[in-house]
Simulated scan of single mutants.
Amino acid sequence: MPAGCAPFSQAEYDRRIAKTRAAMAEAGLDAVFVTDPSNQAWLTGYDGWSFYVHQGVILRMEGEPVWWGRSMDALGGQRTCWMAAENIHGYSDHYIQSTVYHPMQDLAEHFARMGLASARIGVEMENYYYSAKAHAVLTEELPNATLVDATALVNWQRLVKSEEEIGFIRKAARISEKVVTTALERAAPGVRKNDLVADIFHAGITGVDDIWGDYPAIVPLTPSGLDATAAHLTWNGDEMRAGEATFFELSGCYRRYHAPLCRTVFLGTPSDEMRRAEAAQMEG
């Protein structure tokens, strides 16, 4: 079994690494630097709320992946990743929010030590967690390397789920059922939206039986009335009202795996227009 507390079997991680390396070979890459937190977790098991600083996974064509990030988070890497401790690396805090130093300077040194100073390295260019500044510094620090856009290279390998992953999604689905049932049962005129969301969070985190709930990738979206015509609104302290519809976009989460559901509740007697909309949705 993997070291630390990685959630999957070693065979599952070996399968993922092999798929990714096949895609790397097809793209002519010697290594990839993966910054998307979901891709990091998929390859290594790493799971920490640390993606506000620079971190990532280096995968070469041979050997274990290398997790790289802030020194204090490297301890979390040892607790959650399946790799050996020597493949968990942390950089000093003097790189954090500095105008003089940048974490990519440290990363470039790692690439050089790995014999990748002149390699073709894939990076996730279209990614929230790989900034323009990071790319500029890494390019400057590795003048003989070729940095290639490898956005979504790992994501495509994640598309078809394994049996182990499907098992996790089924657990997340049981939590989702509880979350949505809680939202529908407790929605009523006079209930403050923030109180309802608190119940939704409680249902999702407590989970079902021995299936504990994790924090989902998105907060509960619960717009009511005209607010429901705007995408991605969260909640406020207003009371729910009779004659008003509320759109719920919710998901349970188990070990980072989700099973999202969307439902609409109408407090009162729906109008003919609402009924027609329901019929169109059901037909779709």
Results as ranks from 00 to 15, higher is better:
65 P>V: 10
217 A>G: 13
164 E>G: 07
15 R>C: 01
282 M>L: 15
140 E>Y: 06
178 K>C: 06
58 I>Y: 04
135 H>T: 03
71 S>P: 00
107 L>C: 03
179 V>G: 06
39 N>F: 01
203 A>D: 12
256 R>G: 01
129 Y>K: 02
37 P>Q: 06
11 A>C: 01
59 L>V: 10
118 S>W: 03
144 N>F: 10
130 Y>C: 06
106 D>C: 10
91 Y>N: 04
284 G>L: 13
167 G>W: 05
192 R>D: 04
248 F>V: 09
167 G>L: 09
227 D>Q: 14
52 Y>I: 02
27 A>T: 03
220 P>W: 06
40 Q>N: 07
281 Q>M: 15
159 L>P: 01
157 Q>K: 09
70 R>I: 02
44 T>Q: 01
244 E>C: 09
175 I>R: 07
147 L>D: 12
201 F>H: 15
197 V>P: 12
117 A>G: 14
18 A>V: 09
42 W>L: 00
232 H>G: 00
123 V>E: 01
110 H>Q: 15
112 A>V: 13
163 E>N: 11
41 A>M: 02
72 M>Q: 09
144 N>Q: 14
255 R>V: 04
4 G>N: 14
173 A>C: 11
36 D>G: 00
105 Q>M: 15
246 T>Y: 02
81 C>T: 15
260 P>T: 08
38 S>W: 02
94 H>Y: 14
183 A>T: 08
70 R>K: 11
237 G>Q: 13
104 M>N: 13
204 G>W: 10
261 L>D: 13
85 A>H: 10
242 A>W: 09
122 G>M: 12
178 K>R: 15
205 I>P: 01
69 G>E: 06
68 W>H: 08
164 E>N: 09
48 G>N: 04
9 S>C: 08
71 S>V: 03
215 Y>R: 06
24 M>A: 09
270 P>R: 09
119 A>C: 07
201 F>R: 14
230 A>F: 12
18 A>G: 04
105 Q>I: 07
270 P>M: 11
111 F>T: 02
111 F>G: 08
13 Y>T: 01
225 G>H: 05
258 H>D: 08
212 W>R: 13
52 Y>K: 13
125 M>R: 13
5 C>H: 14
149 D>F: 09
267 L>F: 12
80 T>N: 06
94 H>S: 06
182 T>V: 13
62 E>M: 03
141 E>T: 11
67 W>V: 13
237 G>V: 06
258 H>R: 11
253 C>F: 01
118 S>F: 02
103 P>W: 10
258 H>K: 02
180 V>L: 15
163 E>P: 05
172 A>Y: 10
48 G>T: 02
273 E>W: 07
269 T>K: 14
174 R>W: 12
269 T>E: 15
26 E>Q: 14
176 S>V: 11
225 G>I: 04
22 A>Y: 00
51 F>N: 13
50 S>N: 10
77 G>L: 03
279 A>E: 15
117 A>W: 04
4 G>L: 02
147 L>F: 04
226 L>C: 03
222 T>R: 02
277 A>E: 12
264 T>N: 05
13 Y>E: 00
209 D>Q: 11
202 H>A: 15
203 A>R: 11
166 I>F: 08
235 W>L: 07
254 Y>K: 07
238 D>A: 14
4 G>M: 02
8 F>H: 14
186 R>F: 14
